[in-house]
Design a protein around this nucleic acid. Sequence first.
RNA 1: GGUGCCAUAGCUCAGUUGGUAGAGCAACGGACUGAAAAUCCGUGUGUCCCUGGUUCGAUUCCAGGUGGCACCA
Length: 312
Amino acid sequence: MQKTLIIVTGPTGIGKTKLGIYIARHFKTEIVSADSRQIFKELSIGTAVPSTEELLMAKHHFIHSHSISENYNASKYENEALPLLDRLFQMHNEVIMVGGSMLYIDAVCKGIDIIPDADPEIREALKIRLVQEGVESLRLQLKKLDPVYYNQVDLKNPARIIHALEICLTTGKPYSSFRTNQIKERPFKIIKTGLNCDREILHQKINLRVDNMVKDGLEEEARGVYPLKHLNALNTVGYREWFAFFDGEISREKAIGLIKRNSRRYARKQITWFGKDPGTKWFEPGQENEIIETIEKQIKKHPGTIPQAIDH
RNA sequence: GGUGCCAUAGCUCAGUUGGUAGAGCAACGGACUGAAAAUCCGUGUGUCCCUGGUUCGAUUCCAGGUGGCACCA
């Protein structure tokens, strides 16, 4: 029997959680979350994790399963999600993946290249050099160590240059030698369902949701993790803005306003990313019946004809 | 009702000694392979309230209108 991964994606605040549960209950199956922040057990309000009731309506995976102190990333997610899917497909013909973390979904659908872990000390040293010497110095070294990648990379983006350099310096090989850009074959069919709506209405939803998060105690949640604010997991909309407030850099009102703005911008970025995938079928909230109908039609189609995103 | 002030981008406002306009914020578009809720790049989006007048030419000057604010009745 053909196994199918049904992906539910779309911008933040659109209603993916609710739709995912609806589809999961229809197929009597489980949900694998693809959310790079709901995965952390220390975060709840600001990441809009499913409520206790929602978690009871369908079994969820990768919700509150890791700690912000772990150095988590898309590759680790791929390595953990694939075996989990394997197990779930032994019990179900369909499994639902719900989330808005663009690279995490790509990692599961297409795979990302196997690249050795960088030496943390080398990464730190590069970060210091960036501050002290500027990006130009790092660029020059990259040009020497990996001219191939130097010609591809966005030379204005220090994060990309540092990552390439840390791999070159850790492994002694050019970063580009690890980049194969090959799409990995998966032993299951993939159906992508996108949820979106009119931009202005989405903005209203996002603004309202942030207000509700504040009412629910987001400030206290942020205060609780404030001592760990240097962690990458907390370089996140809904938390970093509070840290700036706690540090006396901005007012409380300003912080809340920035959370709304940054959430809106995040949503726009997600729409840009997901929008370029021609394999995604788009719907609006409230179209549950059409969505189920479309998914069932796609499941019945003969396997292996799902268009995948163009490589990048 | 009278007098005064104001009307320019989504918002707050500059500005043009008359040659069709620009800042901040907001917004919009894009890139993306181990930080991805990250990181980076790009874009003014405009009946200068309306109608006349003066002028080669009016968003700018003049008159009237409309709307807003303030004060006086």
